[in-house]
Amino acid sequence: MSSAKTLRGTWLALFGLLLSLRAPAAEAHLVTTGLGPLYDGISHFLVSFEDLLPVIAMALLAGLSGPRAGRRALFVLPAAWLAGGLAGFLTGAAAAGAWVAAFSALVLGLLVAADRRLPLAVVTSLAGALGLLHGWLNGAGIAAANREGLALLGIGGAVFVVVALLAAVAAAVQAQAARIAVRVAGSWIAAVGLLLVGWQFRG
């Protein structure tokens, strides 16, 4: 091999090295459905257990606290999710997402398992805080992955549907066995949340 070719190969490899050092970590946050950002957002939410589990717990908790609390969560949670998502998309940086998911699942799951009827203001605050935090993380993740912000609308729509269905079921159940089933579901979600905290400590 001639020295000119060797030198060219060396420069090429060096250039590749510099490019790879400069490249940011690819954090593919969204599912790609091929149907556009709205559907990407919907499918992302439905397969992201770190978002889905706390929303299920919040919907059950709101339903257990009565139809009025269920209706309040139905609108507050998606609205806060969209507001937080927009803020995260425009300005935020995603950090500590797994911790947020772990603690939301743990706290909300424990409240469902305890089957305490919470005041309306508490349910509203919990739904607002959950929506803002998780929405922020979603928005920041979408921005970091250079994806379209319209996905947030898909996520918000999916949150609305899940809350509507589950809060209605939890509010409607009168039979003792059905209420127990809801409490058991809460204990499962809390258990997963506690394990997630463990996973975060383990790193």
Binding site: L14, G16, S20, A23, A25, A26, E27, H29, L30, V31
Partner: peptide
């Protein structure tokens, strides 16, 4: 150089 380049690349953190 190719080996060092490959080792230095940031990992793809597929979220889902």
């Amino acid at each position: 150089f190719a080996g060092v380049s490959a080792l230095a690349a940031m990992p793809a953190l597929a979220h889902v």
